[in-house]
Design a protein around this nucleic acid. Sequence first.
RNA 1: GCCGGGAUGAUGGAAAGGCAGACAUGACGGACUUAAAAUCCGUUGGUCCUUACAGACCGUGCGGGUUCAAAUCCCGCUCCCGGCACCA
Length: 805
Amino acid sequence: MEIPEYNPKEIEAKWQKIWEDEGTFEASHDKSKPKYYALIEFPYPSGEGLHVGHPRSYTALDIIARKRRLEGYNVLYPIGWDAFGLPTENFAIQHKIHPKLVTKKNVARFKEQLKSLGFSFNWSREINTTDPEYYRWTQWIFLKMFEKGLAYKAEIPINWCVSCKIGLANEEVVNGGCERCGGEVVRKVKNQWLLKITAYAEKLLNDLDTVDYIEKVKTQQRNWIGRSEGAEVDFPIADTDHKVTVFTTRPDTLFGATYMVFSPEHPLIDEWKDKISNMDEVEEYRQQSMKKSDFERTELIKEKTGVELKGVKAVNPVTNKKISIWISDYVLMSYGTGAIMSVPAHDERDWEFAKKFDLPIVEVIKGGDVKKEAYTDVDDGILVNSGFLNGRPMKEAMEAMIDWLEEKGLGRRKVNYKLRDWVFSRQHYWGEPIPLVHCEKCGWVPVPEEELPVLLPDVEHYEPTDTGESPLAKIKEWVNTTCPKCGGPGERETDTMPNWAGSSWYFIRYADPHNDKEFASREEMDYWLPVDWYNGGMEHTTLHLLYSRFWHKFLYDCGLVPTSEPYQRRTSHGMILGENNEKMSKSRGNVINPDDVVEEFGADAFRLYEMFIGAFDQSTPWSQQGVRGCRRFLERVWKLQEFLTDDEGYSPELEGKMHQTAKKVSEDIERMKFNTAVAALMSLTNEFYAVGRVTRDEFKDFLILLNPIASHITEELWQRNGYEGMLNQQRWVVWDEDKAIEDVVEIPVQVNGRVRGTTTIPREASQEEVRIKILEDENISAFINGKNIVKEIFVPGKIYNFVVK
RNA sequence: GCCGGGAUGAUGGAAAGGCAGACAUGACGGACUUAAAAUCCGUUGGUCCUUACAGACCGUGCGGGUUCAAAUCCCGCUCCCGGCACCA
């Protein structure tokens, strides 16, 4: 039989068409089979097109998905588009094209690119977050949250670009300036919708113990949630009925609290206007810190600043001494109560502040020199200058103080979190409209369920208004509506949702993407959820991953989804860098376009290289030479046909290697050691060449093992060489553990830990047998003769070591 | 500052206490070719020794330690990458 040249272009197009025509990778509706749900983060269809970083994750889970199918699972491996968001909106503004059209164009391009790579996505379940049939349910879930009191409005400072007159997301503020124009960014208070994710802080934290996420992800989430235990303490304000509550993790040091500091935004300051004698000075400080961006407030940490509130004093509830009250921007309104008790002797920040303003420093834990610096290494410290706590160790003092506070009604045990509520409003066009109507009489009223979706209306211009409202505010006929409750005049909310909204539940929709009655049917969710394996980037650990866990837990508490966690397993891939070892970016000019690679080397070579490039969880530079090497390997695989014999079974000389390779490839794929799985297949191929023959069964199993990675060439070789059916209908290779172990092994022989030779022995050989054989070897025994053997270590099948003197 | 991760040939990387450098890339040599490419075969950590076969010593960021045996475990550093950062 004449063997044509390996022509990836032809065979890749051929198999992609067959798979599509036959619906090969459609998840079955037959629920008798065990299911497997593999998920990758659905892409944002940017105008740049696919980047070589995307397919790293997609190929990895494509391999898992394909392997699971060969193992007999009913696999769901879906794809969709996270298409709302700023880049599209900005492009639309610049080019005066409707974002809908921009999105459509970008999606088409991404789709074509993804299809050319031959991923086994379930295309009939494709979803798009900007599709009204999809965002109808995003709005619906939001309304559920609103109903349960988890969505609320609050005055929240946003990042405001003075020149663009636009609110920016935190990630759009780069080095204190606007990402787009580089202009000044200040804080501007706006009335915004927030979601009460903090209500789920405890669950989000504790339930990390129930899921299989890589440790790095768990740690980052734990840090982000930032749970800390302590107490709230009430400080009475002298000569008033007021009291101010603070949160502290160190109630044991209360005797050392010599003054208080409020955040400049603290609302009590306004209430005390008349009492504060230096209100001008105070106001000026407040104005200044208001103008400062978050960046300045946190970066300029060299010197503490602040102003005393003259005319008011607080009382330390345990010493009963009057203490002064200050304001300073190192105290954040958004954490704890917005006010702190200051213990300069044992807190670095307080110490700096006290030094600067010459405030009293009282040592309450023995051991340091509080005149020189704050003494904070106090875990085993003993209390001093602390009344009833004197002489007690710190941990005990902590408990005693809290008990005392609770007894006297002056304080209570308290847990605090760094996690903040989720600012859910965007003053942009290209997002889901928030489905609420404001009525003078009834307040905020949800749009009735049957009227969803609230459609995004067409506008002339996508720029925000001068006041920073979203462009929707300009469409009076859309804004002005009737109150769903009382029928009176009402106004629609013009803020839209952030693009984290649609991605917070998309994996649920995949289970039942065309359902027009519910967000997904219970039956489909019961079968498919949770996601078995979710791979994505580390950059989504604290936002997307946490947000979607929050939404899912909320839905679970409403009895709407069957599991309390959305994702059973979460892994993460490393970045692919440019050939110069720098992050790939247009501006650095080191971007590799997957289309070009596929054009030159083929999709199989591309996928193979994406996996062979290096450790999956590590970042690593691209190498065009490396792709060439993978293409070369596929050429060698193609030529194996020339060595194909009519023999069945494994040949004696390759039997061990076949079993070893099956085991190695299977196990490495599960551990995401794709690079070594590929290496094992290359190594086996080298063996086939060395032997110069390959039996039908050897070739068959080799093709199955290679199929998840290089899917087109293996299907083609399967068909060309007369194997039955299609490769994707076969079963994964079963290996025999015993046969994967060599009967005869070569072990190193050491003398005093240095390798002096090797010996080949039967695996089961006894120490005595091995010993005799070794001592027969003159090269080795030369190192032993004339010396005393002190000790001999024999690890069967591994090593023999003589210790001599 | 805090929390992760990392550092191994010229390069990407392999090695879950047991022969460091699998598998590739590149380089060099050979075969084929009028020639080149492609392909195939071989060599390729360093230093020394040797006609050769062989052999010796050194070597996994740096300094110590544990062990018969350390890239791997422990202690102390350096540098790089990622995340968080006045969170009371």
